[in-house]
Every structure is written in C-alpha cells, then in structure tokens.
Design a protein around this nucleic acid. Sequence first.
DNA 1: CTGTTAGCGCCTTCAT
DNA 2: ATGAAGGCGCTAACAG
Lengths: 337, 337
Amino acid sequence: MTTPKRRVPVMADVAREAGVSHQTVSRVLNDHPNVRPDTRARVEAAISRLGYRRNLAARALVTKRSRTLGVVSFDTTLYGPASTIYGIEQAARTAGYFVSIVSLKSIDTASVGDAIDYLAEQGVDGVVVVAPQRSAGRALENLPAGMPAVAVEGTHSTDVSVVCIDQAEGARLATRHLLELGHETVWHVAGPQDWLETEGRIEGWRSALEEAGRPVPEPLAGDWSPRAGDEAGKSLAGMDGVTAVFAANDQMALGVLRALSEKGVRVPEQMSVVGFDDIPESEFFSPPLTTVRQDFDVVGRHCIEVLLRQIEAGPAAFERLVVRPSFVVRASTAPVR
Amino acid sequence: MTTPKRRVPVMADVAREAGVSHQTVSRVLNDHPNVRPDTRARVEAAISRLGYRRNLAARALVTKRSRTLGVVSFDTTLYGPASTIYGIEQAARTAGYFVSIVSLKSIDTASVGDAIDYLAEQGVDGVVVVAPQRSAGRALENLPAGMPAVAVEGTHSTDVSVVCIDQAEGARLATRHLLELGHETVWHVAGPQDWLETEGRIEGWRSALEEAGRPVPEPLAGDWSPRAGDEAGKSLAGMDGVTAVFAANDQMALGVLRALSEKGVRVPEQMSVVGFDDIPESEFFSPPLTTVRQDFDVVGRHCIEVLLRQIEAGPAAFERLVVRPSFVVRASTAPVR
DNA sequence: CTGTTAGCGCCTTCAT
DNA sequence: ATGAAGGCGCTAACAG
C-alpha cells in the first residue's frame, strides 16, 4: 500500500503545466478581461488536466470575503422555516455563495446572539436570521459591527433590513372570507406568545372583525402544534354559537378538524375552519383546508437579494420588503346555515 | 460622517495589548499547555477587551482544515431530510464544526457530484449525503480523492460509510401488525422508483406477506405526495376484498385516508391504514394514524459521529450503522370484521 | 497582455 | 514558558 502521496495541486502547479505565471492562472479563474484567448484555453486545459480546485481559504484570506452566508433559524423542521431556508439556499448558491446554517433549539436573545457570533467567527459575509420571535429580533440590535444582516419576519426595527410576509393582511383575508360567508363572528386559535406572526395574525383578524362591527372573541392560545388545535377545537365544540374558526396555522387547523370530527361537529356544514401557511398536506385534510398561502420561497430569495445588495454595494439604507400572502379556498368553509 | 476606520483586530493587536508575542496568543487560543496561568489571563483579557475573533480563513489556510462539514440533500422541505439535517447540524456544532448545506432540486448523479465538488472547493473537511436514491448514491463512487464521506440511506456499497434506518424491518412491523389483526393480505402504496426507501419498504412488506403465506398484491405506485395517496386510495376503494393498506409514508397515508372518507369507506372499521415516518401531524389525522416511527435525529447524530471518526482518526474501515425503527399503534387500524 | 513582488492572519518549527 | 522566522495559496498592486 505505497500511496504515491500526490499533493493537491495548487495554482503554481497549473501555472507550470500551462507555461504561464500563477498570476495568469488567477486571472483566468477570476474572469479578468486581459487574457489572450489561447492563453486562457491553455490554462483551462491545465486546470482540468490536473483536476485543480482553488483554495477558498487562501482566497478569503486576501479578499476578506468568504462567499459564505450564515443563516440562523429556529426549528428548521417546521414547514415555514424549512421552506424559507430552501429558498435562501437556492438563491445564494445561484449567486455563488455558500450557506452555513445554525438551527437553534431555544430561542432567547442570547442564543441568537451566540449563533451570530459563531457565524461571524467563521467569517460569513452576512447573516439572515429566520427567527420570528420578539426576543430573537432583539439579538439583531447587537450585531458585530459592520455585519450585513437581514431578518425574516423581523420587528419594525430600523437598524436592520427585513423581509416579511404581510401577516395581518393574510389574517384579514381569512376573516373577511368567513364574514362574507355570513358568519356572525370568527374565533381565533392563536400561535404562541412572543412570535411576531402570532401578533400579526391576531391584529389582522381583530381589525377585520372590528371594521365589520362584529364582536371580537377572546383568542384561544396555541403553540403551532396539532395538539393545541385539538384542544382548542374541543373547547370550541362545546361552546354555543361558534360557526367559524380561524387557526393561526395549518397544523393547528388540523387539530381543530380532528377535535370537531371527534365531537361530531361536521365541517363545513356546522363549522367553517380556515388555516394559515398552505402546507402541502392541507389540500388533503378532511375536508381540504381553506387557508392562507405564504410563498416562503419568494421570501428566501428576497432575503438573499437584500443581503447581497448590502454586501456588494455597501451599507445603504435598510430595506423593508413585504410579501403579500394569497388565499386558497377549499372545502373547509361554507356559508353559515 | 468621519468613521474612525477601526480595523478588525488581529492576533498581533492582541499580542501588543497583552504585552506578549502573537505566538503566545495563538497558544492561548489553541489551549496549549505551556502557558503560565497569569499570561493566559492577560491574553484573555486583551482578547475580550479588543473583541478579537480569530480569522478562520487564515487558520484553515495553514491547518488545511476548515472545520466545516458539507451536507448535500434533496428537498430539505420534506420532514425526513429536514429532521435528519437538524440532527446533523446539532451534532456538528456540538463537535465544533460548521455545516454548509446544498439542497438539490433534481437528484441525478451529476447534480450530487456537482454539489460535492462545490463543497470540496469550499474546503469542507467531509460531506454527508442525504440523498437516498440509487442515482444519488452512485455519485459517491467518484468522491474527490480522500474526502471523508457518509451517506444516509445509502446503497450497500463498500467504499463509503452508511447510516440508515432499517426500512425493511419497519415495513415488516407494519405488515405483520395488519396480518395479526386478521387481514387476509395487505396492499401497499409504494414510494417513487429509484428511492432506496421505496425498495426497502416493498421488500419488508413482501417478505412479511410471504412468510405468512399470503398473496402479494401488485404495489400501487406513488411519489410520497398526499395526492398520490389520494389516487391510490380511490383505486383501492373501488376494489373488492381490500381491507388493509400500508402506505410508504404518512403523507400518502393522509391521501389514502382522504380518498376513503370521500368514498364513504370508514377507517378503521372497513379498512385499516398504516403509514411510515410518524410525522408530527399523523397523530391528528382522522383517524389518528398507526405508523412506523423513524428517529431521524439519531440518524443525524450518527452521521456526524461516523464522519468525524473518519476525519479525525483517518480513513479506517467503512462503517455501516443501522437504526431500528419502532411502531406506533393508533386508531387507523383494527381487527378485520 | 503577462510577470514580479508583497503581503493577507495564522500555525509550525526551532531557538531561547 | 515564550519569541522569531517562515510559509500556507491566493490576489493586488505595479512593472514591463
């Protein structure tokens, strides 16, 4: 087993192989204009012959750019974050950037701050923080100096760029739909406290109710899980005069559906249910769920656009990009009897 | 706006601040034994006073280690991959490694190969490939020389380490459960071709049927989506003598449930349904789904263990680590009438 | 258009 | 226990 001990080829090897200086190799690699076509061809041939790959660490050392973007996220197992990160990764790679991810399990200000520090040490050129909690947003106030950053669903802070979906608008869409169907009012199963989405959806739901002059019931507290929806559904089933429910996400709507079916409440005949997110499963719930669609992919792509603008064009004014949700009517809603 | 133009501090700045050489600073940072406690303290004070962070690019340049692991995955939006990656990321970070992710949208051998090359250029110390398709596995045969790698759900190849869940065992658990309930045979809604999981689950289902001496129906083709399950469910509902269905994942089981409910077939009274994965939603399907649980987290952690062993201890023999699935009985299965 | 000369910030080796 | 010298592989200036 005598391995030939072949070194990984470096630029100088390519230069020798092509009969040029290593500088010319560098120029070819970086698409510099001033290289004669045949020289370029010779270099490229040498590169592929040797299987040369440039050493990005060395490159980063001198350019002070790692071409790596950091992503900090909470629970990448949830559909929303997962889809957003997917969009981010696609867009980043298309732009020639690597993506380094940190998934947090708890979401206090300190963890987010630590994660950002960790990424900063790695030398990321910028970070996107997908942590739509109030406490997480606060961590963005102590960014390492000069670190480009963008928050997904961030607060209305002015020291950092934000890309978000108009949560209140989505909730309004859902609530108005129910009202137009003739329901007297709409109950709401809310997300966990501290989440900005929770607040936005409550606000939109409440405002739609108020603008129609309807009573605003106390929202039921949830935590995004189907179980929470199930519990809320059970309470709702036991109450009089409830005909329409707007759950703050599809998973909780699933739980509501389950509780209602168990209690013998028929959807949509006796009760209309709306969700939020449009996860791939919701079209196949029983019945198929009417819901608000968020285009997470677009959010991810916008994040990268905003971030790269900051990285490549320098720190301009902070942007705030709002994506509008759309509404998908399926079979879980119907006119009130 | 005259910015003071403060450079990012480097090791030499810390050295000056602490009154030592930059060498000593390096020793402190790397936990070298030969540093007097008070010197160490002075250096540490200087580090925090200056907010110094070591430049990992420079470090990687000389150590030839980036402390970054690459992950190649297909559709990180699916529950399985997302959970696996979560486990990977947690374990990697705990071990002091960064994780750089590439999500593929198409999954041919070439894309996986490109992704690995891409990560290799970044200088990752190793890669884990979460791409459980036959075609993806093939890309692992052309790894850049000496690149430590581990495949999740890989083939039985001997040139790369593999961490996987025993798919056949899971399918056997599901099928036997149904058989013990008195069903004459069990129908199967399979995953897409080319996926190793699809094959393993078919194999387990078939073997359980054969060992019980039961007829083996033709599997119905699916693609993991609820829609495919819905279509399969419609066919099944129209056939005579079908009393038990094993869907290759929970999403398709959801579709089956939906189709059956639409066709007026009651679950579990008239038809028993089993899924695979135990996604968080399945407990709240109507009815709650009996399914095979895969512990993706554990898989992710094992991947990192195996990979780090390869990176840090050198290329030992290739390992194959098999995780056993478990079985969760809920309300979608019942004794045959 | 191409080559030469200097580092980038850190770790390794060898001195002290 | 600490310091000095050298170089990792690359890009940025400046020559020619």
